[in-house]
Computed example of a mutant assay.
Amino acid sequence: MSWTRRSAGLLVAAMVMPVAACTADGGGAEASCVARYTYQDLTYQDVGNVKFTPGKKLGVAAEPPCEDTGGRGGSEEPAGSTETAYEVDGISPEVAIAVGDTPETARFFAVSSGSELPSEVQKLMDGS
């Protein structure tokens, strides 16, 4: 293999590695980059593939900015995006919500409470 080809391969690998640090499966600062939304002073975290039925529209959920910059010296972080929050049938909005443009495209988010999922969410996951 030529020096040019090896160097190009290393360059591509170096460019891809920082992106992986902000994914749920990556290393480093992934906890700050997990998909999160806030709604009515509660923070919800993406739970993944959960079968659920979205209910009525609740309002607007805000996505906090990713905090993986290692400190920005006091400068303001850009605001995150907003999406529509929906009820999840059978679960209180104090425990879980669905977030997305439409009920059909909404994803399931549960209240962040350390490493444990709320029992209502765990029951839904066990039944899915």
Rank of each mutant, 00 (worst) to 15 (best):
M1L: 08
W3P: 12
S7M: 15
A8F: 10
A8P: 11
A8C: 14
L10F: 13
L10Q: 12
V12A: 14
V12P: 14
A13W: 04
M15Q: 15
V16T: 07
V16R: 10
P18D: 02
V19Q: 11
A20Q: 14
A20H: 11
C22S: 09
C22A: 13
C22K: 12
C22Y: 13
A29Y: 09
A29S: 12
C33V: 11
V34C: 11
V34A: 13
R36K: 15
Y37K: 03
L42Q: 10
T43F: 02
Y44R: 12
Q45T: 15
Q45W: 01
D46S: 14
D46G: 09
D46A: 15
G48N: 05
G48D: 07
F52C: 03
F52I: 04
F52W: 01
T53G: 06
G55N: 04
G55D: 01
K56C: 02
K57F: 03
L58T: 04
L58Q: 02
L58M: 03
A62C: 03
A62D: 06
P64C: 05
P64T: 02
C66L: 07
C66K: 12
C66E: 12
E67R: 14
D68L: 00
D68F: 00
G70P: 06
G71A: 01
R72S: 06
G73T: 05
G73R: 04
P78E: 10
P78C: 04
A79G: 11
G80N: 06
G80F: 04
T82K: 07
T82P: 06
E83V: 04
E83Q: 11
T84F: 00
A85H: 00
A85K: 12
Y86V: 03
Y86F: 11
I91A: 02
P93L: 01
E94A: 09
A96R: 05
I97C: 07
A98L: 05
D101V: 08
T102L: 01
T102M: 07
P103T: 02
E104M: 04
E104G: 10
E104K: 13
T105H: 11
T105N: 04
T105D: 11
F108L: 03
F109G: 07
V111N: 03
S112W: 08
S112H: 12
S113P: 00
S113Y: 03
S115A: 11
E116A: 13
E116F: 07
E116I: 06
P118G: 07
P118A: 10
Q122A: 14
S128P: 08
